[in-house]
Amino acid sequence: MFYPNSPQTSPQLTQIPYGQQYAMMQRQIQQPYHPFATTEPQARLYPYHYQGPIQQEQGGFITQQSTAASPQYVQMRVTPVDQSIMSGYPNQTANGSSSSSFNYNIHPQQQQQQQQQQQQLRHHAMPVGSVPLQDDRYRKQLIVNYLAPDVTSTDLHELFSRFGELDGARIIYDKQTNMSKGYGFVYFCHAEDAKEAVERMSGYEFHGKWLKVGYSTNPLNIVPSNSSPYVHAGSRGAAG
């Protein structure tokens, strides 16, 4: 039997160049792979992502010199942007860049009308829970959420009447099932009393439920100042 490094198959040491006398086997001759043993700084910083320098080929596509990437890492192929796409944008300079302001050559009167329309939209648009300043009635009506099913309009009136005089209180019921929808409205005579009720009743436990109280901004629920107070009856038909 002959071994790869046996004296019968191995040459004389004098015939082997210096430095390879003890590297006779194939696994010894093959050098191990060192990912950080390279002179390129990109490979030292990113050993798993770097795959060699990027070269520009004919046709405008950018390719990489090395083989496919590892399945664990996804390499994105980048193509140059066609400058003709950006030619339609206004205020574009000769080098292809555009300024931040756009001039669509709008007539001054049209621009003024658009600004007025935007101001009107901001004036009428009102986020949930906010209180408008032009109508004091919005500051007097509250919406009470997360009410228990057994709470009546009379219970709601008695709960909030300790903060001040009320114009009314009612629970909203479903017309088909005649069941409470879980929320109601309270109408105060003074805005200061309503503000105190919002601050003190939010998070209050009532009939096993934690109440959420806020201003009601729905104009359909506003009680006119010259109208008669609501009837605080315990029956659902009268309260709904």
Rank of each mutant, 00 (worst) to 15 (best):
F163Y: 15
L147V: 10
A43S: 05
T93G: 13
P80Q: 01
P132S: 08
D150F: 11
H190I: 15
T14D: 04
D135L: 00
Q56E: 04
S228T: 04
Q21S: 08
P4L: 09
F36C: 14
D82Y: 12
Y3I: 07
G240N: 02
S161F: 00
D136I: 00
F206D: 10
F206C: 02
Q176L: 03
I143M: 07
S10N: 02
W210I: 14
S84G: 07
V131Y: 00
M126Y: 15
H34I: 00
P80K: 00
S87Y: 12
N178I: 08
Q176V: 00
G96T: 03
P132K: 07
S6I: 13
R200Y: 12
L121V: 05
M86L: 08
Q26M: 14
Q112D: 03
E205L: 03
Q116I: 01
K181D: 01
D174T: 08
Q115R: 06
R137C: 01
Q12P: 03
T93I: 04
R139P: 02
P108E: 07
Q8G: 07
N178M: 10
F188C: 04
N226I: 13
R77A: 06
K140T: 13
G214I: 05
K209Y: 01
Y33E: 10
D82T: 15
E205I: 13
A233V: 10
R162D: 12
R162I: 06
K195I: 11
G96H: 08
Q176I: 00
D174A: 03
T63L: 14
P224C: 12
Q64E: 11
G19I: 15
S153C: 02
Q115T: 03
P219V: 00
G168S: 07
S87F: 11
Q116H: 05
I62C: 15
Q42E: 08
L121T: 12
S202L: 04
Q117F: 10
A197R: 11
P80G: 11
M86N: 00
Y46H: 01
P90L: 09
Q118F: 09
V231Y: 13
S66W: 15
V186S: 07
Q75R: 03
V151W: 10
T39L: 11
Y173E: 00
Y89F: 14
V213H: 11
Y22R: 03
A191D: 11
D174F: 06
K212S: 05
F160M: 11
Q30M: 15
Q115W: 08
G60Y: 15
N5V: 12
G88L: 09
Q118E: 04
S228R: 14
Q109T: 05
C189E: 11
A68Y: 14
G208E: 08
Y48T: 07
G203T: 04
G60W: 14
Q75I: 15
G214F: 05
Q65N: 03
N105T: 12
P127Y: 01
P224M: 07
Q134S: 14
Y73A: 06
P32H: 00
L147W: 15
Q12D: 10
P4F: 00
S66F: 07
Y173I: 05
G19N: 14
K212M: 03
G88P: 07
P229Q: 05
A194F: 11
R236L: 08
S228Q: 06
S98W: 13
Q117Y: 08
Y46E: 07
P41C: 15
Q55R: 12
I171L: 06
Y50F: 02
N91A: 04
H34K: 03
A233M: 00
T9P: 09
G203I: 11
Q117R: 06
I106Y: 07
E199R: 07
S99V: 04
Q92A: 04
K209C: 06
H207I: 08
Y138G: 08
S153G: 01
A125C: 15
Q115H: 13
T177P: 03
T152K: 02
Q176G: 06
L166S: 05
Q20N: 11
M76A: 07
N178T: 06
R162W: 02
G240Y: 14
E158H: 15
Q112W: 13
S87H: 10
Y173R: 08
S101N: 14
N95T: 07
V186A: 03
Q21E: 01
M179Q: 10
F185T: 13
